[in-house]
Simulated assay, not measured.
Amino acid sequence: MRYSQIRAFHHVAVEGGFSRAAEALSLTQPAISEQVRKLESDYDVLLFNRNKKRVSLTPVGERLLICTKQLFEVENQITDVLSENRAAMEGTLRIIADSAFHLTSRLEAYRKRYPKVFISVRTGNSAEIIEALRNYDAEIGVVGSPNPGPDMEVRGLGQAPIIAFAAKKFFPEFPEKLTLEEIARYPLIFREKGSKTRQKLEDEAVRMGVNLSPAVEVEGREAVQEVVAAGAGIGFVSEAEFGYDVRLAKIAIADTNLSMSESLICLKQRSEVRSIRAFMAILAT
């Protein structure tokens, strides 16, 4: 295989089309198409499904894209090593978190040190976060698990108890605490499957012989908060992430010691990428 063929494939996959890849590489579309065609021919594989309007990756193409992401990241690391002493850090840092609460102070510190780095933040549950890191679709994760996997580098962010919460108008007299069995009598608002908070609650309910089932399932913590604030039922969250909302009040769960450990994570094999290393180091300063 030739470097030019791999580079052409990578840019078509990342840019989502041959014409955009040609523009990104300052080449003609026929030149890009020929490089990809030759790569497919040499290895007797189909990397893209082609139609008139768009291209999409085949399963082999999806696997190859993960490899080329690694390849070109190593290339960028080499450039970083050679230029680190003279160049201000630039580029993009993609963060996926189960809650933005744990990021606020660290984002501020990082932005002050590296103002030329563009930061994007999106939310997801623990399963989505780990998948995104492993697929090179994000650089940094914040996840509700102290042990996300042996391939992850982990920095602990502390732990907090899991609490219930409800709209202040939900109860005639708002309780400070309820048992899990008492909570189960009310309509419950759960996050989607894959949420560590939900998993811990369901496991504890099974252990205690309590039937804990959702009346409403909502994707994302912020969406749960809005549904609960409307008076639809009781939700659950780590106390550290409860924040402040004048519409809501928290309820201690009287008969459990459930807690959430939040961790800052990245792939070990990417831990020396300059932008990732710098963000992980924020915890040590």
Rank of each mutant, 00 (worst) to 15 (best):
R2F: 10
S4I: 11
I6Y: 11
F9N: 05
H10T: 02
H10R: 07
H10A: 04
A13H: 14
A13Q: 13
V14F: 06
E15A: 08
S19L: 09
A24D: 10
L27M: 15
A31S: 13
S33Q: 13
V36A: 09
V36Y: 10
L39I: 14
L39K: 06
D42C: 00
D42E: 07
Y43Q: 13
N51L: 01
K52Y: 08
K53W: 05
S56K: 15
S56Y: 12
S56H: 12
L57A: 08
L57E: 10
T58V: 06
R63P: 02
C67A: 15
C67L: 14
F72N: 14
E75V: 09
E75D: 15
N76P: 02
Q77T: 01
D80C: 01
V81G: 03
N85E: 08
E90D: 10
E90W: 02
L93I: 08
R94S: 11
I95K: 03
S99E: 10
F101M: 04
S105W: 04
R106L: 15
L107D: 09
K112N: 11
Y114V: 04
K116C: 04
K116I: 02
N125I: 06
A127E: 14
I129Q: 06
I130Y: 04
A132W: 12
A138W: 03
A138E: 04
I140E: 00
G144E: 08
E153D: 02
G156C: 07
L157E: 09
L157F: 10
G158A: 12
P161D: 01
I163A: 12
A164R: 06
F165W: 08
K169C: 05
F171M: 03
P172T: 08
E173Q: 13
E176I: 03
E176L: 02
L180K: 00
E181L: 09
R185A: 09
P187R: 11
P187F: 13
P187L: 15
L188Y: 05
L188H: 04
F190Y: 11
T197A: 02
L201P: 03
D203Q: 15
E204Q: 15
M208N: 02
S213E: 14
A215H: 14
A215L: 10
A215I: 06
V218Y: 05
V218Q: 07
E219W: 01
E226N: 05
A229Q: 11
A229F: 10
A229N: 08
G233T: 08
I234H: 00
G235A: 07
G235L: 03
G235P: 06
S238I: 00
A240Y: 06
E241N: 10
G243I: 14
V246C: 05
V246H: 13
R247L: 01
R247T: 00
R247H: 02
L248Q: 14
I251Q: 09
A252T: 03
A252K: 09
A252H: 06
I253E: 05
A254Y: 00
A254S: 14
D255S: 09
S259H: 07
M260Q: 11
K268G: 00
K268Q: 07
Q269C: 07
R270G: 00
V273Q: 01
R274A: 03
S275A: 14
A278H: 08
A278W: 04
I282T: 13
I282M: 15
L283Y: 09
A284D: 15
A284G: 02
